[in-house]
């Protein structure tokens, strides 16, 4: 498998002097196209900070991140924004859907940011809503949808620009067990493909079975990467 992400000696700290705390310390790993990599660990172990550095959101204090062979932190701020827009799809823990826009408009946002024509963007958004099984909800406001449906809208939004890298932050944290498993089945069977790498930050051990590999973190460091026996 081709390398999608190559992180080397990534370090991030907050505070200065005696107050300096390492959120992530000298973490190195590779992730590959066609795999789902879980990043797991207790609260404060540095999972979200690590994913933020990999996705071009938070600049590391040292170390490098290559995504598809591009050192993203050597880019200008505008280029990094372009990188996030074109290469990364985010599914936030709280979804962050716009309540004043329709579901289709929410999904179309990445395309609109890419300056695609409004009507075309909405058409593409409706296609991805169809993919996640919500085509009939396209004109509804997100607040009228259930938690699981909102999660799927967020997934459609992350997919609509066809990114190489998909990042899920606690995707099942606010869902019941059945809905969480259905979402993960959907991600595994419909979203993952050979030209896409999916990173999932989670506490939820009920969904570990969907991982190809699991990277465990503690106190800002990697304590091990295990490959799932059945994958």
């Amino acid at each position: 498998m081709d390398t999608a992400i190559s992180a080397k000696e990534l370090t991030k700290w907050f505070g200065e002097g005696d107050l300096r705390t390492y959120a992530v310390k000298e973490v190195s790993f590779d992730a590959y196209f066609g795999e789902i990599l879980f990043v797991v660990g207790p609260s404060g172990s540095g999972k979200t900070t690590l994913l933020s550095m990999i996705s071009g959101i938070l600049r590391p204090d040292s170390g490098t991140v290559n995504v598809d062979h591009v050192d993203i932190w050597s880019l200008t701020p505008d280029q990094i924004a372009e990188f996030r827009l074109n290469k990364v799809g985010f599914v936030f823990q709280d979804y962050h859907l716009f309540p004043r826009l329709t579901t289709a408009e929410n999904v179309a946002i990445p395309l609109i940011l890419k300056k695609k024509d409004w009507n075309e963007s909405i058409r593409d958004a409706e296609h991805y809503l169809d993919v996640v099984g919500l085509k009939n909800k396209a004109q509804l406001a997100p607040v009228k949808l259930s938690g699981g449906e909102q999660q799927r809208v967020a997934i459609a939004r992350a997919l609509v620009a066809q990114p190489d890298l998909l990042i899920f932050d606690e995707p099942t944290a606010s869902l019941d067990g059945d809905t969480g498993r259905r979402i993960m089945e959907f991600v595994k069977n419909r979203i993952l493909n050979d030209s896409r790498c999916i990173l999932i930050v989670t506490h939820d051990s009920r969904i570990f079975e969907y991982a190809d590999r699991i990277m465990r973190m503690e106190d800002g460091k990697t304590v091990g990467i295990e490959k799932r026996a059945d994958h």
């Binding site: 959101i57 701020p77 505008d78 924004a81 372009e82 990188f83 996030r84 827009l85 074109n86 990364v88 985010f90 936030f92 709280d94 962050h96 716009f98 946002i109 990445p110 940011l113 890419k114 939004r157």
Partner: peptide, 16 residues
């Protein structure tokens, strides 16, 4: 504010 932050995360530039 959070929505604007989400837009930033998705890839909106500051000037946009």
């Amino acid at each position: 504010l959070e929505k604007f932050g989400a837009l930033k995360a998705i890839g909106a530039k500051g000037r946009e």
